[in-house]
Design a protein around this nucleic acid. Sequence first.
RNA 1: GCCGACAUAGCUCAGUUGGCUAGAGCAGCUGAUUUGUAAUCAGCAGGCCCGGGGUUCAAAUCCUCGUGUCGGCACCA
Length: 602
Amino acid sequence: MSAIAIKYNDEIVDLVTAEQRGIEGEEIVLDNSPESLDVLRHSTAHLMAQAIKSLYPDAEFYVGPTVKEGFYYDFKTASEIGEGDLKKIEKQMLSFAKKKYKIEKYEISMDEAKEKFKDDHLKLAVMERIKDDTISIYKQGEFEDLCRGPHLPSIGLIRYFKLTKIAGAYLGGDSKNEMLTRIYGIAFADKESLKNHMTMLAEAAKRDHRKIGNEMKLFTFREEVGAGFPIWLPAGGRLRARLEGLLFKAHRKHGYQPVRGPEMLRADLWKTSGHYQNYGENMYFTQIDDIEFGVKPMNCVGHIKVYEDELHSYRDLPIKYFEYGVVHRHEMTGALHGLFRVREFTQDDAHIFCTVDQIEEQIIEVVDFVDKIMTTFDFKYNMTISTKPEKAVGDALVWEKSEAALISAMEKNNLPYTIDEGGGAFYGPKIDIKILDAIGREWQCGTIQLDNNLPERFGLEYNGENNEKIQPVMIHRAILGSFERFIGILTEHYAGEFPMFIAPTQVAIVPVAETHKEYAKLLSDKLIDINADSEIYAKNDSLNKRIRVAEKTRVPMIVVIGDEEIENKTISVRDRRTREQYTISEEEFLKLIQTKINEVNF
RNA sequence: GCCGACAUAGCUCAGUUGGCUAGAGCAGCUGAUUUGUAAUCAGCAGGCCCGGGGUUCAAAUCCUCGUGUCGGCACCA
């Protein structure tokens, strides 16, 4: 196979450029390597632009880069383009590709380029961002586009691609600018890979928590209730209660005290905390008896009031409060997305009040807690430390100590982490926990944030060894982030097949005939005694039908009860995945369930 | 919030260029059947076609304003 580009000093250079510059290097052939795909997809973006230009001659083009999942091109045309037009554009692309136009390249000066594209205000906008004096132009057939490259030698090499999405996007990614049309696409070197990719997308769609949540009756949303306000259905309620229960126990073991602050607090407090000024747009307010109240968007203030309830000695620290705190945030309509982004959600929120010297050990403990939970759910995760941003408040020395403590906590425990320089909150540095689900997608959930701002604003203090007043450090931390989002992620991670310890129903009991119902009920009661939920499928349907229904509900375990089982005190267990059956004694069965429920240890 | 698409029974979806009483499957209810590991049969019931306003002899269908959902963008203390 002939080369499509070369690698020269770690730079991918296309053949036409290599020839112009008279350089040689390692050959890159057309395959599915990252380098090769990058060139291929970039050229596919140009091919798409060429097709769009021929179908919509007034189209003006902004930028068309490759991204993680393919490529896109932003453009503008007077005609309305919808999803249905993608096929048409694809067809035009194929017909151009068949003509096997060579992709040529030449350079002109910036002034010439501005003259050449003077009717295309988007291209002019692109050039505004380029500092060089010369501009390279890539040409295929009649179509010309200014571009840095690299590109394929010919568009004839582009065969296996698909346009996937059409959407709006702001010029330059700035919401103050005009909205352009963006079309996303994907391309591969061979047919098989494209097919696999499309299959993978379909797999991901099957796992969509909104779809599974509906099928399994976990939660719902209703127009008349309002956007972004989830309704938890019985099955979801059971799942959530299990998660809450497990986590409650774990918090107690880790030395946290359960507390609870009010849902609404006087607006004056939000002024003291700074939320009124900085976050007010996202808050819900109400006025009663001439007093303004704000519904809490966070739980910190409530916990501060708990702290203020008594005087504290350095001997009491660290003090750890936790709460399943319900918060309301007025997220923008377009941001709402199933359980991932809602307007009312419950955080597994905790605040640790400690001395500066205790930061490190506290961080280590929290990180350890996080690790236990993530491991239990088979999540891989990574952590990012975000450091002091430009706009920051608080003592420089405390900032320094805090950041050092975070890094040292990671180093001492040999935990991998990355640093986001300047990415911290204005009040302190933080660690974000990003989890990777079963199909490799990344989610931001938990966060550990140091805060010197709120203790300062509320004048928090404790008595030191010499009876002096010292300001404590506050650590905000959430491990799941919110129950809503975390359950959404779990749903997609497990594709709805939850492990026994959080499944909404642990066991489906299917009595063979009417006469076995009574025994089924007895078994169900025994399961309740060991904290397992079961459901009896005793409807007047065929056995096959009831097993089918039970399978579809994704219950981890199905047992069938008939004459044989009752007589021998055994249980016939059906494995959902393999569809295989085995028989064990009732005693063994109950023990098995109990073990599976208790195999969690956060 | 912005660009675009969509909204019909509890769920998944049909419904022609505006034209008769808006259909199907699943779920539900009533019967018959009492079942040994992925759909037994028959019958019944179920809809302000998302909401308001308009165009028209006539609107689920066309226009308009809302609301909600979806795909992106922007946002994400």
